Amino acid sequence: MIDQPLRVGFIPLVDAAALIVAVDKGFTKAEGLNVELVREVSWSNVRDKLNIGLFEAAHLLAPVAIASSLGLGHVKVPIVASFNLGINGNAITVSPALHAALMSELDGDPTDPMATAQALRRVVVARARAGADPLTFGMTFPFSTHNYQLRFWMAAGGVDPDEDVRLVVLPPPYMVESLANGHVDAFCVGAPWNSVAVDLGVGHILHFVSDILLRAAEKVLAMRQSWAEKNPDTVAALTRAHVSAAAFIEAPENRNEIAAILAKPHHIGVSPEVLLRTLDGRLKIAPDGTMRESGRYLLVGREGAGRPDPVQAAWLYAQMVRWGQAAISPEALKIAQGVFRPDLYDAALGIIGSAPTDVPDAVGAFAGPPFDPSNIAAHLAAFEIVHMKS
């Protein structure tokens, strides 16, 4: 047993489940680790405390790990991720007023993101003609999957996210109140906050992120590269503990127990019933009780979700390039892909792993050509709305 506790930061979201369950059910202890979980409210807090060494590891937005390694938006601290804490799990939630406006303009299936993105375009144009303020969308961080997923969806329908709407940063726990107060018209966030908005009658879930991308790396178990290199046995033990926790979470007979664990005030602090719906991928999407089910809503361990995939890192880097956050270069792409470390995952488990084959390009975006990580410039050239650095 390691006497000195490993401090691990997290945000109250369901994709922190493997972290929480690893500690609560004793999987970290079984690996000889003494882990102290520290709940935080914002991603900047988590990033900063990880970067300066107050945390040994953290539940972290996958793009933040890449941005930190590239020195984008903050100090440059190389990060590695030996385990994916979640694939998918986000949703886009809109106010009742915006939902009504979108449905009145909809031409097609409301679960089709192209149809809703084109409806959004018509709503945006109508508001501009009427002299109304631009719509405001909340997302969790500039370097976040939420930011890129919102932008990808909007742009596919002809809405320029930098010209036609406002995107603002809000910590996940503050999203619902901001929607209820009219500070934002919509948001993209991870579970359970979309469901909380629906249950309170202040929001409609418009899309699961799996409508937009079949497979999207969301959060990672992040560590400073320098610390990981000095502590390879601890990294391996942490990784194994999370693999065990993920397997426990994915077993349907454990779901009620897991929901109760996550519901504790010092973990996520919302009702077990909401958390159970999230884990089962069966969500209430409207205040009237309409339900929607998806086997891809949130993948914690199944379908190879835990093993980091450098193609996912390349896609996130491509979004940073598309929206002017990063310059395009082979060196930066290599650094970005090097954040996701399947070799550390494989070494911890004593296996030779492989990438999932259920999604041919490993991303499965609803619009644009298949993703080619070897030619990001050509991939981005296929899109009409791009704001690359000149």
Results as ranks from 00 to 15, higher is better:
Ile335Ser: 01
Thr111Trp: 12
Arg341Val: 08
Ala156Met: 01
Cys188Gln: 10
Ala247Ile: 00
Pro142Gly: 11
Ala260Ile: 00
Asp233Asn: 12
Gly306Arg: 05
Ile328Met: 13
Met291Gly: 06
Trp315Leu: 11
Gln312Glu: 10
Ala128His: 14
Tyr297Asn: 03
Ala381Val: 07
Leu380Pro: 04
Ala382Gly: 12
Gly306Ala: 11
Val165Ala: 13
Asp233His: 07
Ala17Ile: 06
Ile205Met: 04
Ala18Val: 07
Ala362Lys: 11
Asp185Lys: 07
Ser69Thr: 11
Trp153Arg: 09
Glu177Arg: 14
Asp3Ile: 03
Ile268His: 01
Pro161Trp: 01
Gly301Asp: 11
Leu135Gln: 10
Val220Pro: 09
His146Gly: 14
Met1Cys: 02
Asn256Leu: 00
Pro110Tyr: 15
Ala22Val: 01
Gly73Leu: 02
Arg121Ser: 14
Asp280Cys: 07
Arg307Glu: 05
Asp372Pro: 08
Lys29Val: 01
Val220Asn: 10
Lys76Asp: 11
Glu303His: 03
Val75Trp: 03
Pro63Ala: 15
Trp193Lys: 08
Val339Tyr: 04
Ala247Trp: 02
Val321Thr: 08
Lys284Ser: 03
Ile205Asp: 03
Ala180Ile: 03
Leu13Phe: 00
Leu200Asp: 07
Thr290Ile: 04
Leu60Ile: 12
Leu299Ser: 07
Ala236Met: 10
Leu6Glu: 08
Leu214Asp: 13
Pro252Asp: 02
Val23Asp: 15
Ile66Glu: 05
Gly281Asp: 09
Gly131Trp: 12
Ala336Arg: 05
Pro360Thr: 08
Lys230Arg: 14
Asp372Lys: 13
Ala81Tyr: 08
Arg255Phe: 06
Arg322Pro: 13
Ile335Pro: 04
Tyr174Phe: 14
Arg127Leu: 12
Leu6Asp: 01
Phe143Glu: 09
Leu120Met: 15
Pro287His: 05
Ala119Tyr: 00
Asp24Gly: 01
